[in-house]
């Protein structure tokens, strides 16, 4: 394992060209005190910085594979690159920032905390969302927020087909075009409280060049919440 380097504060450093992901995660699960951690040469490795349970500030200098920051609690994880499938899946709290783009299922089932993607996100962004907030600076692919239950998905660009299919109570805000809405997802009125919410989420994501008033809101029509013979054509 790499030797801690001393700057103004104690910063632990891992080089995944030398250290293993296992060593990194074990160290992050074992340390009594959180702090700043720098991860170099991630090389697209999977499961980097997963299961954190303390207010670490993890900076990953490059691209990561699947499930980076999976089930994150309390920690801030910043990826200076792109990430693979399922970034911040089932996140409980904390902050995950992707400076590049994200692959499929970004923020899947995330229950709390905030995921910010400065590039684009692929299909199923925010699938099964359960309370976290996701802000995407670019566009998202198809099936965004599929079966989303709680939380917000803010897309500054465009959304692909079947947005919000089988949606529950998650709120979706899209500034650009929407290729198509999924089953039981409808456009809803963008009232002042919603503009304020988008403004707040953009500010928290440190995105200051996008006007919250330009977004449109989508949510569940709640027509399919209970099985009924009259709804069969909608499934």
């Amino acid at each position: 394992m790499a030797t801690p380097e001393i700057t103004q504060e104690v910063v632990r450093s891992f080089d995944l060209a030398v250290d293993t992901v296992r060593e990194l995660n074990q160290a992050l699960h074992s340390e009594a005190s959180a702090g700043r951690v720098v991860v170099r040469n991630p090389g697209g490795r999977h499961a980097v910085a997963v299961g954190l349970d303390a207010p670490y500030e993890v900076e990953i200098e490059g691209h990561v594979g699947y499930y980076c920051a999976g089930m994150n609690k309390l920690a801030t994880v910043r990826v200076r690159g792109n990430c693979g499938v399922g970034v911040a899946e089932n996140m409980m709290s904390g902050l995950v920032v992707i400076e590049g783009s994200a692959s499929q299922s970004a923020g899947a089932s995330a229950r709390g905390g905030r995921l910010v993607i400065h590039g684009d996100a692929s299909a199923r962004c925010g699938i099964s969302l359960k309370g976290a907030d996701i802000v995407v600076r670019g566009s998202i692919g198809h099936m965004g927020a599929f079966m989303g239950q709680k939380g917000c998905l803010v897309v500054c660009g465009d959304a692909g087909d079947s947005l919000g299919d089988s949606l529950y109570e998650a709120r979706l805000y899209v500034r650009g075009s929407v290729a198509g809405l999924g089953a039981d997802c409808i456009e809803k009125e963008m009232r002042a409280e919603h503009v304020a919410q988008v403004r707040e989420l953009l500010a928290a994501a440190e995105i200051d060049d996008v006007d919250a008033a330009e977004f449109r809101r989508y949510g569940s029509a709640r027509r399919l919440y209970n099985f009924h013979v009259d709804n069969l054509g909608n499934y």
Binding site: N25, Q26, H29, H46, A47, Y66, G70, S105, A108, S128
Partner: peptide, 26 residues
């Protein structure tokens, strides 16, 4: 749901299991 939200086939499942092992320290 009938499908997992963050993996879709056997190759993904292998990586999903790796993540679960990492979270629980094997």
């Amino acid at each position: 749901a009938c499908r997992h939200p963050d993996w879709t086939g056997p190759d993904d499942l292998e990586i999903k299991i790796e993540e679960l092992r990492e979270i629980t320290d094997w």
